[in-house]
C-alpha cells in the first residue's frame, strides 16, 4: 500500500506518469447522462471518475430552510466505498462534509440565486474512482450539471490544482504526487469574470511558489474550460440532430 517512489520527477523533467510540469491529465467530459436528473455531467480526469447531478429549482425540503429572496443551493460531495485503495465507509466523513461546503461556496458565486426565490437546487456529486484532485474535477462536473439543468449562471466554474513536487511547481497532481509531494493548491475559477471561487492549500510554499502555483492552476482551468464548453455544445448538437431525424 505504502510504496513511496524514489523520484517523482526524472532527469528529463518528466513526472511519474510521463507528463511535463505544466501538463494536464487527459480530461473527458460528457453532459446530460443521467435521465432522472434535471442536469448532469460525467468527468474522467486522469483516473478520476465522477458523476454530478443537479435537481431543481424545486420546492425546498425541509421548507423552513427556504429563503424569501433567493434560491438555496445545496451540495453533497460523496465518495463511493470502492473509489479508493482501502474501502471507505459510506457514511460522510469530516473531509466530505468540508468539501461539500467549499464546493457549494465555489459554485454559488456563478449562480443567479435571486432569480428563483423560495426554491432549492441540490447538487449531488458521486466520486466513483479517486486519483487525486477529486474536488476540482467535481466542481468542473457540478457546474456543467447546473448549466445542463438550465439554471442561469454568470459563467461556468472550472477547477484545477497545482502543487509542489520535489521543489518544482507542477500542474494537476495525481494521487501519488498529492500524497508524497510537498504542497497542493486547488483553485476554482470563472474565466469570464477573472474570479477565483475556491482556493485551498496544504503543504508548505514560499510566497513566490504560491504565486506561481496559482497562475499555473488558472492556466490549467482555462484549458479545461474549453473542454467544458465543447461538452455542453456536443449534447445540444446531438439533440438537434435527433430532432431532425424525427421530423
Amino acid at each position: 500500500m505504502n510504496e513511496k517512489p524514489e523520484k517523482l520527477i526524472d532527469k528529463k523533467g518528466l513526472r511519474l506518469d510521463g507528463r511535463k510540469a505544466d501538463e494536464l491529465r487527459p480530461v473527458k467530459i460528457e453532459v446530460g447522462i443521467l435521465p432522472n436528473a434535471d442536469g448532469s455531467a460525467y468527468i474522467e480526469h486522469g483516473k478520476n471518475k465522477i458523476l454530478a447531478a443537479a435537481f431543481g429549482p424545486r420546492e425546498m425540503h425541509p421548507k423552513h430552510l427556504s429563503r424569501p429572496d433567493r434560491m438555496v443551493l445545496r451540495c453533497r460531495y460523496h465518495m463511493a466505498p470502492f473509489s479508493v485503495g482501502e474501502r471507505k465507509s459510506p457514511a460522510p466523513s469530516r473531509r466530505e462534509i468540508e468539501l461539500s461546503k467549499v464546493i457549494r461556496e465555489s459554485l454559488e458565486p456563478a449562480v443567479f440565486v435571486e432569480y428563483y426565490p423560495r426554491t432549492g437546487v441540490d447538487v449531488f456529486i458521486e466520486v466513483l474512482q479517486a486519483d487525486g484532485g477529486t474536488r476540482c474535477a467535481s466542481i468542473t462536473a457540478a457546474s456543467l450539471a447546473l448549466a445542463d439543468a438550465g439554471i442561469p449562471m454568470r459563467d461556468i466554474v472550472v477547477a484545477c490544482a497545482a502543487g509542489k513536487v520535489e521543489d518544482k511547481v507542477v500542474l494537476d497532481l495525481f494521487d501519488t504526487e498529492d500524497k508524497v509531494g510537498s504542497a497542493d493548491v486547488p483553485v476554482a475559477f470563472m474565466p469570464n469574470l477573472n474570479a477565483v471561487t475556491l482556493l485551498q492549500m496544504d503543504g508548505i510554499l514560499t510566497p513566490d511558489e504560491f504565486e506561481k502555483a496559482v497562475s499555473m492552476a488558472i492556466d490549467g482551468c482555462k484549458k479545461i474550460y474549453e473542454l467544458q464548453k465543447e461538452a455542453l455544445k456536443t449534447k445540444y448538437m446531438l439533440l438537434e440532430a435527433e430532432e431532425e431525424v424525427e421530423e
Binding site: N194, A195, T197
Partner: peptide, 19 residues
C-alpha cells in the same frame, strides 16, 4: 512561508486580490 489556505463564503477573489 504559507502552510495552509482556505477560501470561504459564497463570493470570489480575483487573482490580484489573492496576491
Amino acid at each position: 512561508n504559507i502552510c495552509a489556505i482556505q477560501k470561504g463564503c459564497a463570493g470570489y477573489f480575483t487573482q490580484q486580490q489573492i496576491l
